[in-house]
């Protein structure tokens, strides 16, 4: 899932300072599951902003609503009236959600209520960890299913740097060394030969370095056209 966390209230207050009618727009997908921008969090944020604006002596009209998925326009269309009526929309979806609203409603002013952090999973109640960096050319088949691009602080492809000790990364004792994890897993499976070969330089053009990415599926496009 996409994992995000709410921006500090003061920062959001600054973003909406000039507006009177504010809509906090939640999303029912990833950010609901990570307790950052679902129905509940959108409601709490709306209440907080309303109270804060009262205390500041300039009460704002703050409402909230939540759609099932902010990253698909058809769900946004269902709340089009509320979006258009507001002076400002605080999207508590991920960065994709914010931009989906912007693209669908070019005349509306939209600001983010969250910092979108990473793609990851909950490893225990209240803890989320990054697992995928969307590099565009997956090597998990060579590394025992543990990603050195997302999980090694230096994105190393040929084994651990000199800073790996007692299973943790040199940058933090809280951070497992990805290459220690890879080593342990491959060793337990008798597959260490997978990492004795030199991995060549990575093709970063498949990653964000190649510019914003786009996938076109002609099979799906043709089907869509045929049905029109």
């Amino acid at each position: 899932m996409i994992v995000a966390e709410q921006k500090p209230l003061d920062e959001i207050k600054g973003l909406i300072a000039e507006a009177e009618k504010v809509l906090v727009l939640g999303c029912g997908t990833c950010v609901t599951v990570c307790f950052a921008g679902g129905e509940k969090e959108a409601g709490i944020l709306a209440t907080s902003l309303r109270m804060a604006s009262k205390i500041d002596g300039q009460p704002k009209d703050v409402t909230h609503t939540t759609v099932q998925r902010q990253c698909e326009w058809e769900y946004l269309d269902a709340v089009a009236d509320q979006i258009r009526e507001a002076d400002i929309v605080v999207s508590v979806g991920c960065g994709i959600g914010v931009q989906a609203v912007v693209e669908r409603f070019p005349e509306v002013w939209v600001v983010p209520g969250l910092n979108t952090s990473f793609m990851g999973l909950p490893t225990e109640q209240g803890v989320w960890e990054e697992r995928c960096a969307a590099c565009g050319s997956c090597i998990l088949g060579l590394t025992g299913g543990i990603c050195p691009i997302a999980r090694c602080a230096k994105q190393l492809l040929n084994g651990p740097c000199g800073g790996s000790q007692n299973g943790v990364c040199e940058i933090s004792k809280e951070l497992p060394c990805a290459w220690q994890l890879i080593y342990d897993r491959l060793k337990s499976q008798n597959r260490l030969h997978l990492i004795t070969q030199i991995q060549p330089p990575k093709d970063w053009s498949k990653s964000r370095d190649g510019g914003p990415r786009r996938i076109t599926r002609e099979d799906l496009r043709l089907a869509a056209e045929a049905s029109e």
Binding site: G159, C161, G163, C177, Q180, Y183, D184
Partner: peptide, 15 residues
Amino acid sequence: PFGDPFEWRPYRLGK
């Protein structure tokens, strides 16, 4: 030589 995994270090050197 003292980084971990200790037993893997010579192989890393080998690379």
